[in-house]
Design a binder for these strands. Structure first.
Lengths: 195, 195
DNA sequence: GAATAGATAGAACGATCAGTCTAATATGTC
DNA sequence: GACATATTAGACTGATCGTTCTATCTATTC
């Protein structure tokens, strides 16, 4: 990938993260990236496409970081805990400003499918991944249901960590996740007994 | 309150909900409200103040609706369940487009305290209210901790309900809330036994 | 050294933005 | 009927927006 294109994505990511998508104009991105106007439009047909590229890049970066972090653990339960721990480490980052996908979804809604699709794809991937882990602990239908709950916990924790400047929310959210999983395991086993 | 001011707030609320704050211009609001330009600026010094007024109004509307809905129930547990049920009914609304406070927070961040403060105040009020209910079921320190978890569940459910167009998430979130509360009650009682 | 491709600065585009000003009109009160 | 207040339509300002265009420059490659 062209180094200029790279600089544009990096500068745009930083500016969008700090100020949002709409308030950041092309000029500001060009100045920060140290790139000429036409260079941007040679690489991206429009601002929307730059936004999409930023989100795509973020998607890959997060997934790579998450996988590396999670694969260092052994059991499914440790992997799930690692996901929450990864979030806490992220919340503690000085540049943490919420989830860029959520913010894109909040700003653009479904009016711009090119943009909102990345956010939804991220959610679905996360949920499927979590469900896979849970399948070693729970029957399949329970795993998918609980996965959607853990996603809710992660999304809610991300939002409230930003609103309250409280990274420790992630650990408490993991405690809640454990309670949900425990209850589900208990319900499943009693079902087996009753049979 | 002046009927013109009222129309402005209503039209702005609708437009902001559907398209976000930045993309909606003053002209669009004026056209929808059927109000002249200077009338707006007689009532609100700036667009930011109109946004704040919209959020304030929303805050009062939601709180009134929630309280009316919850006060129809008897026990603390029923009240908590009612909060989740209220959210599900909200998610089923055709005009549901996520939480306006969250979206304001996502769009403006903390760069505009006048705006973000309303969102954070909403969160804190909700959490304190939930904590009060929980205090009849749990010791105080546990009540406040669990309250922050229920807030996470509500916030996460609101976000995912919008992203996936799935109102039933609220019911599942309540199931998760019950699991968290049950576990906490169990832990508390064993503590008592051990003493 | 010629040719090609990519990047440069900067002017210019038309559109839209929030906000101001003016002058006329409507409404209700004394 | 006079006065005060609220509202009106619409022109206008200065700024900013995303985008296009041109003309110059730099680097690589044959």
């Amino acid at each position: 990938m062209s180094p200029k294109k790279e600089q544009l994505i990096l500068a745009a990511t930083d500016l969008f993260s700090r100020h949002g998508f709409h308030p950041v104009g092309i000029d500001r991105i060009l100045a920060d990236a140290g790139v000429a106007r036409m260079t941007l439009y040679n690489h991206f047909p429009s601002k929307d496409d730059l936004i999409t590229a930023v989100l795509d890049r973020r998607y890959e970066g997060i997934m790579a970081s998450l996988h590396a972090f999670v694969e260092a653990t052994a059991t499914a339960r440790e992997q799930l805990e690692a996901i929450f721990a990864w979030h806490e480490a992220w919340f503690e980052t000085p540049e943490f400003s919420g989830c860029l996908f959520e913010r894109a979804l909040a700003e653009f809604g479904s009016d711009y499918p090119k943009i909102s699709d990345v956010a939804i794809r991220y959610k679905k991937t996360m949920m499927a991944w979590i469900a896979d882990m849970l399948k070693t602990l729970l029957p399949e239908h329970a795993a998918t249901r609980v996965a959607s709950l853990l996603l809710i916990l992660l999304d809610g924790a991300t939002i409230d960590a930003r609103a309250f400047h409280d990274p420790t929310i992630a650990t408490r959210a993991w405690g809640a996740a454990e309670a949900i999983i425990e209850q589900e395991i208990r319900l499943t086993s009693t079902n087996f007994v009753r049979r």
